[in-house]
Amino acid sequence: MQDKYYLGAYWGPRKETALECARRGELFFHMLARCDPAFAQWYRAGRGFPRELPGWPVRPEMKELEAFFLKGRLRTDVGKEVIEELGFSQMVWNAKKEAIMITFSCGGYSWGGPNSCLVSPIGKSVVWDRLVHSPVMTEVLTSMATAWDPDFAMASSSQMVDLIQKRKREVRVGWLTYLSRRLGTLPPLPAPVRIEPVGALGWLLTLSPEPMTADNPENVALTARVRELLDRAGLIERPQPGPASEGHE
């Protein structure tokens, strides 16, 4: 089975307004546009958009993004009241066919689910295949880490995650892995792992310049070894969910 690659950034409860999420989103979209032309324009859902377009164009401007996130507030089934602690959830995509999508969950301060930013293809995509096998993925992951300040981020395949992950809630390790300094102190890691700082926020670990596949025993063994060393250093285990009133930032 062919590996299905994606990039994901995750962070715990962080109470932020739509405007604060928009500031992060503005930075993210601008950084992303510099990574590759495929990331230059994004679209959102909505009635009445021009039929020749994939959706309504999203302009990476703070006020527009604030309104965009406000439309993504989660509400109760009865009464349609805003559930503030769950923050904002939205999605954008970049093309009509063979599209790449980004899903956002941000501003949440409940343990009901993590805040995240995910980048993945919608079905098969020649563009995505090109990007996955290029240095662009490092730039995209760095953009995610810089803009959203997550606890961790990684580029991997769902198949590799299934093989390597040991607990339901833990820091995931991919062929590219970002770890925030908030998690702890990075231990020595074996060759050929390369470690680079991401500003003052954290570290980027590169296990391989190419995507690692779940059917390659050497790829699996190296990823599992790095996960084990990070786990011994206390960087893998994440806090267990608690009452919504706990752990707010």
Rank of each mutant, 00 (worst) to 15 (best):
T103E: 13
H248C: 10
E81N: 09
P54G: 06
T17C: 04
Q90A: 15
T142A: 10
A45N: 14
F29Y: 11
V92T: 03
I102V: 15
A244F: 11
L53G: 01
G55E: 05
C117V: 15
T213K: 14
S116G: 03
G184L: 05
P190F: 05
D151K: 06
W56T: 00
W148C: 01
W111D: 05
L7V: 06
K96R: 13
P54D: 08
S120H: 07
S110C: 11
K166W: 02
A67G: 15
G46K: 07
R75C: 10
E81W: 02
T185A: 14
R34F: 00
E84H: 10
F49H: 15
V136M: 08
S156D: 06
R225M: 14
R169L: 12
F28P: 06
A155T: 06
M160I: 01
P211T: 11
P243A: 13
G79E: 06
R225Q: 15
A38T: 11
L19G: 08
V220M: 11
S105D: 09
M137T: 07
A233G: 07
G242F: 02
T17R: 01
E228C: 00
M154R: 09
S180C: 06
E64N: 05
R181D: 03
A22Q: 03
Y43C: 02
T17D: 02
A40C: 07
E61Q: 13
A155Y: 04
E16N: 04
L70T: 12
I122N: 08
L205D: 04
S208Y: 05
A191D: 14
S245N: 13
I102M: 08
M62D: 08
L7G: 05
